[in-house]
Simulated assay, not measured.
Amino acid sequence: MKTNLLEPRALCLLLISTLTVMSNVTIAPALPGLANEFSGTPSADFLVKMLLPIPALFVVIFAPALGWTADKFGRRNQIIIATIVFSIAGAAGAQLQGLEAIIISRAILGICVAGLMTAVTALITDYYSGQKRSQFMGLQQAFSSIGGILFIVTAGYLANTSARLPFYIYAVAILFVPLIFLSISETKQAVQPSDHQQDYKNTRWKQPLIGCSILIFCHFMVFYILPTQVPFFMVEIGITDPSKSGLAIGMGTLMAAISSIFFGKLVAKIQSYGVALISFIAMSLGMFVLSQATSFSSVILGCGLMGVCMGFVMPNFMTKGMELVPSNKRGLASGVLTSSIFIGQFVSPFFSSALIAKLGYSDFYLLAGAFTLVLALAGTTTLKKQSALITNLK
């Protein structure tokens, strides 16, 4: 049941998955330098800060439509086009002279990410089924997390020389194009469901898809507290070294990578609803630890627990959301799931900042932990009902 990572098709899909996290994190270390470079531009501080969320906003807008085009015109063609444009639009920021032009290039980058995520998720569902699909989804999350760590470290090093150099990291994507040409095809997994199962797929697949999308949205709304609020929280409790906030965020990413590697084995033992339960409980415990945190070690522990949840939740709900989707709707379905991820990311800073202003950090983390326990119950119930239904259909 193990996935052969040396298989060109598998390796290609995993490498492409690293590009999806590159859109946001890569230029983060360059923002102070860019703000200084464009200090004479009207509203420069606001526009520079918008460089990070702009791709996510355009993913939200375009993911459903590009999911549909992946179904209509083919996943392979969309991946090739999106990868080429991704590398050009991303690297363009190194040479564009105006801040507005860079923002436009970032918007195009977001559209490309939407095209990549929807087509890749659909292809994974086409190529793999059952336990192998769960294992691959876990590996995809691991590659994304590891890629995020490598890109942010490399970008930080380059930003010390010039704020424009991190943009060139996006050009790495062009190296994947020959591998895509050689290894990716439109061949779908030849899985023939029973008549009852096929009838359910054709008529009732939307309900579990929407349920998983809502849970993914809620998860990201809470998880994005890590990069958006924890650095400010650390300053509040007296940890002012920026490198330590980077280590705390890195711990969350590292634990997400480690836990996602074991997702396939864990889901085989305790089922998807069992994974949902322990995932959200881990997040809730992380919130409780942060609510009581007064030292760097306790912050690291809380962030690590949040990362464990991330490593399990993403492959779990992506797999279950796509489980009953007919093959000709998988692109559209992956577009819906992709939008839910980025809507959660986009909304998170607004809701968390408002609540922190009213409650303070400690009470806010307790509230977030209680909300995550609700997600544990909702996620477990949703996936248990879906698993029982699928068992009855077999």
Rank of each mutant, 00 (worst) to 15 (best):
M1V: 13
A142M: 06
L209Q: 10
A159V: 04
Q131P: 13
C303G: 05
N160W: 01
F296T: 11
K320E: 15
Q198P: 08
T319P: 10
P242R: 00
F371V: 03
M22P: 15
S23F: 04
K394E: 15
Q140R: 13
A35K: 07
A257F: 00
I300P: 13
G252N: 03
L373V: 07
S213V: 05
S387M: 02
V172N: 06
R76D: 09
S39H: 05
I104M: 05
L247R: 04
I261G: 13
A91K: 08
L15F: 00
G379I: 00
A107Y: 09
I261Y: 09
V313E: 04
V21F: 01
I210S: 12
S272Q: 15
T391F: 01
V59Q: 07
T382N: 11
G321P: 14
I169K: 14
A101Y: 12
K320Y: 04
Y127H: 09
L116A: 04
G344Y: 05
F151T: 13
G252D: 03
F38Y: 08
T391W: 00
R330L: 04
T161S: 07
S185T: 15
V313S: 06
Y157W: 10
F220H: 12
L165N: 11
F296I: 09
G344K: 11
P29S: 05
G379M: 01
V153L: 06
L179I: 07
F350N: 10
I79G: 06
Q97T: 14
M1I: 10
Y361V: 02
S260G: 15
A333D: 10
V347T: 12
S334R: 09
F223N: 15
V222L: 12
F223H: 12
S279Q: 02
V267C: 05
V25R: 14
P178M: 00
G246H: 03
Q198E: 13
Q271P: 02
T18G: 02
E37S: 12
P32E: 00
A94T: 11
S284P: 01
D126W: 02
Y157N: 14
L109M: 01
L175E: 12
T391N: 14
Q292I: 01
N160L: 08
T294F: 05
I80W: 05
A63R: 13
I258L: 12
Y361M: 04
S260V: 01
G238L: 00
V347I: 14
S362H: 12
